[in-house]
Design a protein around this nucleic acid. Sequence first.
DNA 1: GTCTATAGGCAGATAGAC
DNA 2: GTCTATCTGCCTATAGAC
Lengths: 197, 197
Amino acid sequence: MMATPASSEPGTRGRILDAAERLVQSRGFNGFSYADVASELGVTKASLHYHFPSKAELGEALIARYSARFVAALGQIDADGLAPAAKLAAYAALYAQVLREERMCLCGMLAAEYETLPAPMRHAILSFFDHNQGWLRTVMEDGRADRSMSFDGTAEDGAQTILGGLEGALLVARPYHDVGRFETAATRLIAGVTGAR
Amino acid sequence: MMATPASSEPGTRGRILDAAERLVQSRGFNGFSYADVASELGVTKASLHYHFPSKAELGEALIARYSARFVAALGQIDADGLAPAAKLAAYAALYAQVLREERMCLCGMLAAEYETLPAPMRHAILSFFDHNQGWLRTVMEDGRADRSMSFDGTAEDGAQTILGGLEGALLVARPYHDVGRFETAATRLIAGVTGAR
DNA sequence: GTCTATAGGCAGATAGAC
DNA sequence: GTCTATCTGCCTATAGAC
């Protein structure tokens, strides 16, 4: 049901992305350095620059891989043939898994640092949110169509509320090291927005 | 209805806090430097160190002032004698005002960078969330008591969902420069969690 | 209180040997 | 591809004059 959480690619390039991804998700893009990645991998900083000439390019590669993994996970949820409400629960479970690794969503973290990031990274972050919101909107439209969901306003607005709500639940729950805190909020959030009683 | 948004204290110390606060809320604690504050104020870095010997102490002072301002704003909302639902709307309006200045909530921003911060700042961030959640819980309990609100589960869980939801709505809406995006989510969030139809 | 000057360290990045 | 060595610049922080 879930895309491979990490350690997906083989080779040095993949190991760099794995280490950098974990560092960004826990410390932020401005909170880690090439030296951090190098020491974790047992290589030199110069070696990293061979694979990713600049930190900005490393950042772009991180978002691209993370987004692709998320797209795959959403495709898998669709392929599982779940009911709309179950799809939303599966979606929230993706976030819960991130929190279990004591991480923030990569793009949620980068959204906080948005003002400091180069344009290509900014665009990729918005694309991530757009894609997620589009998927959520479709699920909510399906739920309304089959009468399993009932809600005011547009599915787009509902999708936006869920996306932001889950990102914020992650943001606040992580410092407390409390996954239950996230899950409670996620359940109420989905129920509240979709009209479940 | 709203506490003074900024520029509250006079004197150099207050001007330093004002500039640093804006920088942290837009760029993050790891995304600004003493040089940024100094150039904005037209003083030297050394002068800043006279008022705040270390960046960590500046960070603690920022959270303390921000929290005090928020406590005052919540007290004002209580003093206005609003109905519980109106109190929640007023609470959300505090966040909307932050977004209008193209900022993130100070403590929401710092929550993202939590892993990189010194212990005193961490504790102050959690205290901010605890206080806000406690206030929201009381409002929801009042709403349930006077039957103006109806919701499943505990008021504590509902308060937590609103707090995280609003933080996340800010986080995601800010890169889009879209206050309407926040307000739509905030309205649905409050309605969904409190049982409004 | 604010300044000049500077220390000491770490950041991202490059050149060139192997 | 990975290394050693190095560059340049910025970072936080301090000393001491005014």
